[in-house]
């Protein structure tokens, strides 16, 4: 009977965590925003979350684009279809790799940092101290970080795809000698703004909400000890990566499935 009890206990814990996370998000984003005070905080967090993640996103995007082109070329050239390389690279990046890899890198780079930062603020009583100063930590600390994450990730994903395409162009056209004209024109003929680019952006907005939410909640809910914070950081990366991959399947099925 033990395992049934354990199952019940785990289920209750899961649901109570989801409940607490929803309350936190609700408290943070439903509140009336104060633009005069909130905007500088938001800008600061866009810097910390978005600008500082640029390097890893750009470098990864470039290399993934290059690898895609190289791998794609060796397959396509067997069918004499190497002119479609641009189509292959662009569709893979825009529909899948851009949003997904960006979200995974974001979880590792910015998400873990968010969790650790908020967890430490909790452990050093900074959050309690805000509350005692009659400043709501949900609005002062959580909300700007949440919005900054939701704002930054789609931008990062678009930059990832763009740089990846340039990397693909570099390898495909400059190195492997695919015709530049057909590389771009076949790409342009097959990529649609609404179907591919917009759906990719929608995907990355969904991932942004999920990853940022998990990251700040794990920090906010962390056990305020060094062990608790390290656990929370690990959980952020694991849970948000799994959530991104799972959601990606659902979204892909909804968007491109039929």
């Amino acid at each position: 009977m033990d395992w049934i009890q354990n199952l019940g206990k785990n289920t209750i814990e899961r649901f109570s965590a989801i409940g607490r996370a929803s309350f936190m998000l609700f408290g943070a984003i439903v509140a009336k925003p104060n633009f005069v005070k909130g905007f500088p905080l938001f800008t600061k967090q866009v810097y910390v979350i978005g600008v500082l993640s640029l390097v890893i996103i750009l470098v990864s995007g470039l290399f993934i684009g290059m690898v895609l082109a190289l791998q794609g070329y060796t397959v396509l050239v067997d069918y004499g279809a190497e002119d479609s390389l641009g189509q292959m690279v662009s569709l893979s990046l825009l529909r899948e790799l851009g949003p997904v890899v960006t979200a995974l890198l974001f979880a590792g780079r910015a998400g873990s940092a968010l969790t650790a930062e908020i967890g430490l603020m909790k452990a050093t009583e900074q959050l309690t101290s805000l509350e005692m100063m009659a400043v709501d930590p949900l609005r002062r600390v959580i909300a700007p970080r949440f919005w900054a994450g939701v704002f930054s990730m789609p931008i990062l994903a678009m930059l990832f795809s763009s740089v990846g395409l340039l990397g693909g162009h570099l390898v495909g056209v400059e190195w492997l000698g695919v015709d530049q004209g057909s590389f771009w024109s076949i790409m342009q003929a097959s990529v649609e703004f609404e179907g591919d680019i917009l759906n990719g952006i929608i995907k990355s907005i969904v991932f942004a909400i999920v990853v940022t939410w998990i990251a700040i909640f794990r920090g906010y809910d962390a056990i305020p000890t060094s062990e608790g914070i390290s656990q929370a950081t690990t959980q952020t990366v694991v849970q948000s990566s799994l959530a991104v991959l799972g959601l990606d399947f659902v979204l892909t099925a909804l968007m491109f499935g039929s």
């Binding site: 800008t43 930059l159 771009w184 790409m187 680019i197």
Partner: peptide, 29 residues
């Protein structure tokens, strides 16, 4: 917040818009 951060964030947003334009205009049909 310092001027430098504001500048970098502005640049970041501009890059984002540039990427969107690039994708919309030269990648999509």
């Amino acid at each position: 917040i310092s001027k430098k951060i504001e500048l970098l964030v502005g640049l970041f947003v501009a890059l984002g818009i540039a990427a969107l334009m690039f994708l919309a205009l030269s990648v999509a049909s």
